[in-house]
Write a protein that binds this DNA or RNA. Structure first.
Lengths: 152, 152
DNA sequence: CCTGAAAACGATTAGAA
DNA sequence: TTCTAATCGTTTTCAGG
């Protein structure tokens, strides 16, 4: 099996998630059906976990983004903050982190007022303290991952 | 013009970036051609800025991610860190932020060793000090934005 | 701005190497 | 795993409301 072809497919499809099989076929130099079976395999193995349209936050009503670090108030309690917060769909990402805080959230909201509300919701839902860092400007994001080394 | 249809299209296409026009048509209750022209318009207006496959970082060779806050060493110098760092393609996102640091990066690398190298590269390339927070676990990310209010 | 239908194109499947 | 070729579904274009 030739990983470099898979990597080429992955690179192409993460740059253009709607690329057709024939476009991918041109890009990697295999027939359409060969590309198709490789793509299918990458999907079923979960190397490709999904496809997304990238929306412009400004035009979509969530121009304000922020990082929220969270720290449990009671270190003795069961700490399942990620689940407790999952219903808040302003939260785009939730990571457990090393350092002073336990988790880092990335959130998108329509306004400062909405951010205030969200922070309050986070605190109440997960019984945590928070430290919010407002994003002033986004220079770039969603830059495509370039697959490195083997995909197996 | 009916924004609620556009919002429905956006919601659907950000959940499945490869949804066909007929699937979207079913989802929003308009003909395929109507959906197509709306989608085209959303693309040309930049409401949809692109499409991406979401790859599994583990399987793609970048299992380690981190936040890097950066602060210019010399506040007098022209501060164009985002441009100076753009060539480092381990950097997935670059935001200007409020707070102690100037910028927040989100990066993905193959190993701790590669992170060390990246941090060094960042410091040298932009003449900045850094503060790195390693991600221990990602509970979720890439959660689809749900469009709020008007898209114009 | 919408629909509906014809033509072009892409995706899928089957069979063979 | 790959290819080609036939079939099927999707996208595109256009006439008309």
């Amino acid at each position: 099996m030739d990983d470099s072809v898979d990597r080429a497919i992955l690179t192409a499809i993460s740059r253009d998630g709607r690329a057709t099989l024939s476009q991918l076929s041109d890009a990697v130099g295999l027939s359409v059906s060969a590309v198709q079976s490789r793509l299918r395999r990458l999907e079923t193995r979960g190397v490709i976990s999904g496809y997304q349209a990238i929306l412009d936050p400004e035009q979509v009503g969530t121009p304000l983004s922020a990082f929220i670090e969270i720290t449990p108030l009671d270190p003795a309690q069961p700490d399942n903050a990620p689940e407790l917060l999952e219903h808040l769909d302003a939260i785009e990402a939730c990571h457990s982190i090393a350092g002073d805080a336990s988790y880092m959230l990335f959130v998108r909201v329509p306004s400062p007022r909405a951010l205030e509300e969200l922070v309050r919701d986070v605190r109440l839902a997960a019984n945590v303290s928070t430290r919010t860092t407002v994003v002033l400007q986004t220079y770039y994001e969603h830059r495509p991952i370039i697959p490195v080394g083997s995909t197996e």
